[in-house]
Amino acid sequence: MSNRIQTEDIVFRHPFSLRGWAELQPAGTYVLETEEELVEGLSFPAWRRVSTTITHRPGRAQAVVQMLPVDPQDLARARAADAGRP
C-alpha cells in the first residue's frame, strides 16, 4: 500500500492546549504532518488519513524536539480560538 505525508507549517500566536495534553504549549511555529494511505481497489485515487502529528521545533540548538499525536478536529478548534483572540 502506498503512503504519502503532507507537511504544513502552522503558527500559534498565543499559548494553547489540546484535549488529552497535560501541558500548555507555547506560542510559535509548529509542523503539522498528516500521513495518508492509498485506498486500493477503486477506479480513482482516494486517500485515507492514518495519523496526524504536530511538532514544535525550539529555536535553540540541541533542544528536545517533541512530536505529539493530534486530533484534526481539536487542532481546528485550537487554531480558530487562537485566531479569534486579540
Rank of each mutant, 00 (worst) to 15 (best):
M1A: 12
M1W: 08
S2K: 13
R4D: 04
R4M: 04
R4H: 06
R4E: 10
I5E: 09
I5R: 12
I5H: 02
Q6I: 08
T7V: 12
E8W: 02
I10E: 10
I10M: 07
I10G: 05
V11T: 14
V11Q: 12
F12W: 03
R13Q: 14
H14R: 08
H14N: 11
P15M: 04
P15S: 05
P15A: 04
F16T: 13
S17D: 02
L18N: 03
L18P: 01
W21D: 04
W21K: 00
A22D: 15
A22F: 06
A22Q: 13
E23L: 12
E23W: 08
Q25W: 04
P26V: 12
G28T: 01
G28I: 03
T29H: 02
T29V: 11
T29E: 14
Y30T: 03
V31H: 00
V31Y: 03
E33P: 00
E33C: 05
E33H: 14
E33G: 00
T34E: 12
T34A: 10
E35N: 03
E37W: 10
E37A: 11
E37V: 05
L38C: 01
V39R: 13
V39E: 08
E40C: 04
E40I: 05
G41M: 06
L42C: 06
S43D: 12
S43H: 05
S43G: 06
F44S: 11
F44T: 04
P45S: 12
A46S: 11
A46E: 14
A46L: 13
A46H: 11
A46G: 07
A46K: 10
A46Q: 15
W47H: 02
W47I: 08
W47A: 02
R48P: 00
R48G: 02
R48D: 10
R48Q: 14
R49Q: 08
R49G: 03
V50I: 15
V50N: 12
V50C: 11
S51A: 13
S51N: 11
S51M: 08
S51Y: 10
I54S: 02
I54Q: 02
T55R: 14
T55W: 07
P58S: 09
P58D: 05
G59K: 05
G59I: 06
R60N: 07
R60E: 13
A61F: 05
A61Q: 08
A61E: 10
Q62S: 13
Q62K: 09
Q62A: 09
Q62V: 07
A63V: 01
A63K: 01
A63F: 01
A63M: 06
A63R: 06
V64G: 01
V64M: 05
V64F: 04
V65S: 07
Q66C: 00
M67E: 13
M67Q: 13
L68M: 13
L68K: 12
L68T: 07
P69G: 02
P72I: 00
Q73V: 14
Q73F: 13
D74W: 11
D74I: 03
L75Q: 07
A76N: 05
A76W: 03
R77N: 08
R77D: 14
R77C: 03
A78E: 00
A78K: 03
R79L: 15
R79M: 15
R79P: 00
A80V: 11
A80D: 12
A81G: 06
A81P: 00
D82I: 02
D82R: 04
D82G: 09
A83Y: 04
R85I: 03
R85D: 09
